[in-house]
Design a protein around this nucleic acid. Structure first.
Length: 747
DNA sequence: GGATCTCATGTTTTT
DNA sequence: CATGAGATCC
């Protein structure tokens, strides 16, 4: 049988497990995608299950697409109705179909992203007369989001402290606003499905009947709401197979809880449990190193990963002077590996935070090397793209006040703050929405209104445009509607000002236009939904022959022959926000583990001696995780030795001729004056405040005790100068210039 | 009404 | 350092 081809025993057991609850614990690279695809084929071919009776939930749209593709290949495409997608897209589809059974929503509801949510919270705070300084929208949204993840409605929200009482009020108002906008946020998609199922047993029964078999990928990253949804759907038949690995759980901050794996065991005591331990991706050496790292986490299900790929290249650990040098080292390494016959797409460079991509990008550009950046300033978050989507959204759902607020005067068309406010007032007094008010001014010559002259012209002109688009949206394609909007608003003239940036922005608009052109049959509603639910990792285009730059989070589920993980420093990986919480720290470790286990053949780890986290560069400590990799698996020297070498290099750093010399602004920027300490005022003649530092970065200096060293940085503090010097023997010292008696040395 | 500037503010990861 | 809000100027 086709579906058993090339499977090992554990995989076969999983694929052919009898219907019922199945828990597959799958280590990295153990072929879980294979299990899922073969299982689907098995269900269809062997158990005669109709494709439309299967629901498969994946973590990204890309994973869903790939899986569908593989299944199609194995089955010659008899797949009509197979439901495959992310939790969010699955929920959106169910809700879209059930709008008749939903209070507050109709078929045209839109999905609000994080930025939209921010706007809604701000509005809610305003409505409640609350100060957004005292109650930061971000914090409020956190509270609201966690409530929704736990399926707690505003009514059920129990406040246990003062902030929470505020959060409760904001949450309530926030939901009202969303309802008025015919909009849901990401968390609503999940919560509303569960609420619907609970309120309408008949609706639930319908879906239980339809989805006789449920498969879930990346189960360790489900949250309470997602698990609740699965449980309800599976309640009738318990035909649910979940695949997960608690060691790869990295979305706790988003409400994911790997303990759902334990809950699954409790919910289905008879569940068959299958352990996939054979790894088909990495060398034994990479596996051993990864295992050594993850072993430091407690309360794990022990897995004994093994592979046929004995031995393997040693892991290379390097320290760079700073992030620039680190990036250059990565690029240089890639260049030399290219000479050995590698192709650019064999490599991936990973990092903890998006901000770190910058120096890497620059290094690739300098070296003229192809790269592809996943995420960062994501395409759909760009201003111009959001503008155009806002126009489309408003045409689709005129109740969307966030989109309205975004584009009512973008490009500027003479509707300023004052006019906007007047219109809102008038609209409210007439019982109209702002969009309706605009349209009324445009189409009804007899309407009574308080506007005159310029304001009236601007308002009604915009009303005429809105009216036209709303009519057009049913008649023409998304692309054509976009063309009409672009032309009638003069968007190009507005955004493309002839500068390079303007060019780029217009190019992004055109990119969006081509997305709309790709699938012509797509309705406006479908288009907007697709656009709202794209994931970071969805944009990893494997067809381009370029090196991939991505965050560790975005790397989950991917694999590459050669992997670089950069920024292995305490404060970066593990991230500084994780230090005071054991669980967060454990998650940072898992993140590192995920990164390491992406590598097939070679793994390069690097950290920088100095890094500017924000503003001024600081001396960094190598990541604690590096110490957990057994010595004999590493090429090169241990952490201590490495640091010593860097110190030496720091002191002999060739500042003047190196392109890496930090740009020194001339004249030096004005320094903040620190309040003069009391004891200084008592001395007779305080030295005149310094206006310029005496020591430059790179300057060689002589110290009485420490010998010769190199200035790393120097800043003015009060009336003194604080000089940081690297001494080859002693290390880094921070010295006050007035005490240290440093002598400048010319070499 | 709109553009431009300054200042402050706060930064993980993303459906 | 990058974005956003508020003030100021045109």
């Amino acid at each position: 049988m086709d579906y058993l081809n090339g499977l090992n025993e554990a995989q076969r057991t999983a694929v052919t497990a009898p219907p019922g609850p199945v828990l597959v614990l799958a280590g990295p690279g153990s072929g879980k995608t294979r299990v899922l695809t073969h299982r689907i084929v098995y269900l269809i071919q062997e158990l005669n299950v109709s494709p439309w009776r299967i629901l498969a939930v994946t973590f990204t749209n890309k994973a869903a697409k790939e899986m569908r593709h593989r299944v199609e290949q194995m089955m010659d495409g008899r797949l009509r109705g197979l439901m495959m997608g992310t939790f969010h897209s699955t929920c959106a589809r169910i809700l879209r179909r059930e709008t008749d059974n939903l209070p507050y929503y109709d078929r045209d509801f839109v999905i609000f992203d994080t930025a939209d949510q921010q706007q809604v919270v701000k509005q809610a705070l305003k409505d409640l007369n609350l100060d957004d300084k005292k109650f930061p929208p971000r914090k409020m949204l956190n509270g609201i989001g966690s409530a929704k993840n736990e399926i707690i409605t505003p009514d059920e929200y129990r406040a246990t402290n003062y902030i929470a009482t505020i959060t409760q009020r904001v949450y309530e108002q926030y939901q009202k606003t969303l309802h008025a906008n015919n909009a849901m946020d990401f968390d609503d998609l999940l919560m509303n499905v569960v609420l619907l199922f609970d309120e309408r047993p008949d609706v639930l029964a319908k879906y239980q009947q339809q989805y006789q078999h449920i498969l879930v990928d990346e189960f360790q990253d489900t949250n309470t709401a997602q698990y609740a949804m699965l449980k309800r759907l599976a309640a009738a038949h318990s035909n649910i197979l979940v695949v997960g690995d608690s060691d790869q759980s990295v979305y706790r901050w988003r409400g994911a809880d790997y303990r759902n794996i334990n809950r699954f065991r409790e919910s289905y005591p008879g569940a068959q449990q299958i352990l996939l331990e054979q790894n088909y991706r990495s060398t034994q050496l990479i596996l051993d190193a990864s295992k050594a790292v993850i072993q430091h986490n407690h309360n794990r299900v022990h897995k004994d990963l093994f592979t046929d790929r004995e031995g393997g290249e040693l892991i290379v650990v390097r320290e760079a002077y700073n992030d620039l040098e680190e990036a250059d080292t990565v690029v240089n390494t890639i260049q030399s590996l290219l000479l050995d016959g590698h192709s650019p797409s064999d490599f991936a460079v990973m990092y903890r935070t998006n901000a770190q991509s910058r120096s890497l990008e620059e290094a690739f550009v300098r070296a003229n090397m192809p790269y592809r950046l996943v995420g960062a300033t994501q395409f759909y978050k760009r201003r111009e793209v959001k503008d155009i989507i806002a126009y489309l959204r408003l045409a689709h759902n005129p109740l969307d006040s966030v989109s309205y607020g975004r584009i009512v005067n973008t490009p500027t068309r003479g509707i300023g703050a004052k006019t906007k406010e007047n219109l809102a007032h008038w609209a409210a007094s007439q019982g109209l929405t702002p969009v309706e008010a605009h349209m009324m001014l445009a189409v009804d010559p007899d309407v009574q209104h308080p506007f005159r002259g310029r304001a009236f012209n601007a308002l009604s002109r915009f009303g005429a445009l809105l009216d036209a688009w709303i009519t057009l949206r049913e008649q023409i394609s998304v692309g054509e509607l976009m063309d009409a909007i672009l032309e009638q608003t003069g968007y190009r003239e507005y955004i493309d000002d002839g500068t390079e940036e303007g060019n780029d922005r217009w190019a992004n608009v055109m990119e969006l236009r081509s997305v709309a052109a790709e699938d012509t049959g797509v309705s406006l509603s479908e288009f907007l939904e697709q656009v709202a639910l794209v994931a970071e990792a969805d944009n990893v285009d494997a067809t381009v022959n370029a090196t991939t730059l991505l965050t560790l989070h975005a790397a989950k589920g991917l694999e590459f022959p050669v992997v670089f993980i950069t920024g292995l420093e305490d404060g970066i990986l593990p991230h500084s926000r994780s230090f005071d919480d054991v669980e967060s720290m454990a998650e940072e470790r898992r993140l590192f583990y995920v990164g390491m286990t992406r590598a097939e053949d070679q793994l390069y780890l690097s950290h920088s001696f100095r890094r500017a986290v924000w503003g001024e560069p600081e001396v960094m400590t190598p990541s604690r995780f590096l110490n957990d990799i057994p010595f004999d698996l590493v090429d090169g020297v241990g952490t201590g030795k490495r640091r010593e070498r860097t110190k030496k290099r720091a002191s002999s750093w060739n500042w003047s001729s190196s392109s890496h010399a930090p740009a020194r602004r001339v004249p030096p920027p004005p320094q903040k004056r620190m309040p003069t300490p009391q004891y200084l005022e008592e001395t007779a003649a305080p030295p005149p405040p310094l206006t310029q530092s005496q020591f430059r970065t790179g300057q060689k200096v002589q110290h009485a005790k420490f010998g010769i060293g190199t200035v790393i940085e120097s800043k003015l503090v009060g009336s003194d100068e604080e000089v940081t010097v690297a001494f080859p023997e002693t290390g880094i010292k921070r010295l006050a210039a007035s005490f240290a008696k440093l002598e400048k040395i010319n070499d």
